Amino acid sequence: MKKFQLFLVVESLFLTMAFLTILASDFAAAVCILVMVLLVLRFYNMGSRSNFLLTAGLLLLFLIFMLNPYVIAAILFAVAYILINHFSQVKQNNRRALIQFEKDELDVRPKRNKWIGSKQHLISDDYCFDDINIIRVTGSDTIDLSQVIVKGKDNVIVIRKVYGPTQILVPLDVTVKLDVSAVYGNVTYFDFPAYDLRNESIKLSQPADQDLLKSVKLIVSVIAGSVEVKRL
């Protein structure tokens, strides 16, 4: 509640300064704003929701057209307040959910996505392979399957990014089913010739490797970037 009170105080200061500067430069515009504010208050007290929203929207639009720095500051502050308040509420809800998960003995492992920068996945051999789901804006991703214990054929790696190369290093006893979709990119699948993608997708697998007991399905969606699968 204190946050909201502080928000109202700051917004009131910005709008008051905006009104005073408009009054000093353009008396007619100040009178127009004052009349619209009174109309907003009247419709609010009368409970006429449609007229209230219409008048409030016209008032905000008029203030934006005035290009007053205090009005712009008030709008930016309001947007920042909404975003910060929203993210704080999301974090609080997530904390409550995690506590409930722990009470119910549910296995949960939240992990933040790294949107930008290079990243190497599966760099420890202390645990078995776990499915990977990555969302990235840009960056280089290297997935080394030699550092984990791969079991079975239901292993999935999903990577969605805007731009950047992706490389997967595969042991000899693991087969890879590759599914790549790109607007502008190229695919290198083991020792086979590279294939250029231009707003298309491609699926690659080796029928001769279907008898292997270990398999990984790699799904990559990228706007622009290269995908390379190579043996160690």
Rank of each mutant, 00 (worst) to 15 (best):
I99V: 03
D144T: 05
D154G: 07
D144Y: 08
E105I: 05
I75N: 01
V79R: 07
R112E: 05
G152L: 10
Q120H: 15
I159N: 01
I149F: 06
A97Q: 13
I64H: 08
T138E: 08
I134N: 03
R95Y: 14
G139S: 04
I159C: 04
D107Q: 09
Q100Y: 08
I72G: 01
Y127E: 14
T175N: 14
L76S: 11
L54F: 12
P110S: 07
T175V: 02
L63G: 04
F52W: 12
K91S: 11
V158I: 09
F65N: 09
N51V: 07
L83I: 15
D126T: 05
D126E: 15
I159T: 00
M66C: 09
T175F: 02
V79F: 05
P69V: 04
F52H: 08
V170N: 02
C128H: 15
L106C: 09
R96I: 02
H121Q: 11
N68G: 11
N155Q: 09
F87W: 12
F129A: 14
D144F: 08
S118M: 10
D130K: 15
G164L: 02
N51F: 15
V71L: 03
K177Y: 06
A73E: 05
V108R: 08
D107C: 10
Q100K: 11
I82R: 03
M66A: 11
I135E: 14
K177H: 10
I84Y: 10
L178D: 06
L61F: 12
I75S: 06
I116Y: 07
V174I: 11
T55E: 13
I72E: 10
G139Q: 03
K111G: 07
K111F: 09
D144R: 11
S146P: 02
I143R: 02
N94S: 12
T175C: 05
I134K: 08
I72D: 07
S124W: 02
P110R: 13
R96G: 07
E105K: 15
S146D: 08
I123W: 04
H121T: 01
D126R: 07
H121V: 02
E102F: 08
F101K: 14
V90Q: 13
Q89P: 01
R160M: 05
G57A: 07
D173V: 09
T138R: 06
N113R: 15
I134A: 04
V162W: 03
I149L: 05
T55Q: 10
T166W: 01
N94G: 10
F62I: 03
C128P: 03
I135N: 15
N93H: 13
I168G: 00
I149P: 05
A56W: 00
D126G: 09
L63V: 01
I72H: 03
V162D: 03
A80C: 09
Y81M: 00
K177P: 00
A73K: 04
F65D: 01
I132H: 01
K114P: 01
N93Q: 14
F52L: 07
R49S: 14
V79Y: 06
E105L: 10
K91W: 05
I64C: 12
D130S: 14
I159E: 00
V162E: 02
F65S: 08
L145N: 03
L169D: 03
D125S: 15
Q100A: 13
I143C: 00
N113M: 13
K91T: 08
K177T: 04
W115I: 12
Q147C: 02
S118V: 01
L145R: 00
V156S: 06
A73F: 02
V170M: 02
L67C: 11
K103N: 12
V108H: 11
I116A: 09
I149M: 09
V137T: 10
C128V: 09
